[in-house]
Design a protein around this nucleic acid. Structure first.
Lengths: 153, 153
DNA sequence: CTTGAAAAATGGAGGGT
DNA sequence: ACCCTCCATTTTTCAAG
């Protein structure tokens, strides 16, 4: 896999900010004609630099006004329990992100809930029935000050 | 602002997963013709349910193999210091997300770094020159198990 | 809502420097 | 690897049922 040049990086940045720009618009921004830009974008897609294109949905408008980071400690630390935990977690709609982390806890979840009642129900009923969990610690988000959704390279 | 019906929600889910589907493809999936689907999508865009369309870039392929959650405690807790902190943080490319949180710490940052050396340099030189910071605590991501990028409603 | 159609814009492929 | 041209597809709008 060849390295990216400056133009490729510019295209990734532009598409990472707004993927609805046309090939022609991108071409104008990087001072090329549309053909090479088209080919470069296709190459960035097929080489996996661009993973996919998505719409960003406003969670608050859908009633999901609460973001919580939920730290999880497992009961035991063998591979089977860890795998079991991840499998169970992937099923939960409230969990939008899940990381295996260093430190006092084993996993960090980012959870979207409608309100505190919903979150309480999530912890007691959904996390409560994931048997691999030892303990949890919740950190509530009061405001989101930045989210770029992509690496800033 | 009128409420969304089931079709609107389906469209948001579909576009939140893959925004490259054509209006015709979306229409087939929700069992409608292209005209109402086109109008619904436009309405979801102009009403802000769809915030924007982006390409998801593979950070690892660009050399950013390290994700760190960095907890920050401010020196003082007045409004001016908080605002000063956020302003400084917004400038840092390594910071992809920033949240004002409850608990022992004041802010949680999600940071992308190329490697540990890069992260060390980020903490010492970049965070080190943000004078509003009192203390930091880093949690390193060992693996990302889930990331939906959008609320699962 | 559906079908159908049509104009304008874009995507995508060809040949040439 | 770039540019330009051309055709196919898609977007976007509209009319009629």
């Amino acid at each position: 896999m060849e390295k990216l040049d400056d133009i490729d990086e510019q295209l990734l940045k532009l598409l990472g900010e707004n993927s609805k720009q046309t090939i022609k618009e991108l071409a104008d921004r990087v001072n090329l004609s549309h053909t090479p830009v088209f080919e470069r974008v296709k190459r960035l897609e097929s080489n996996g630099y661009i993973k996919k294109y998505i719409a960003l949905i406003d969670a608050e408008k859908l009633g999901y006004g609460l973001i919580v980071f939920c730290n999880i400690k497992l009961k035991q630390h063998d591979k089977r329990i860890g795998h079991e935990f991840v499998t169970d977690i992937l099923r939960l709609d409230e969990v939008v992100e899940c990381y295996n982390i260093s430190g006092d806890f084993d996993f960090l979840l980012k959870v979207y809930a409608k309100d505190m009642k919903h979150y309480q129900d999530f912890v007691f009923n959904k996390l409560g029935s994931v048997t691999s969990i030892g303990s949890t610690h919740s950190t509530f988000v009061m405001s989101e000050n930045k989210n770029t959704y992509n690496v800033n390279f």
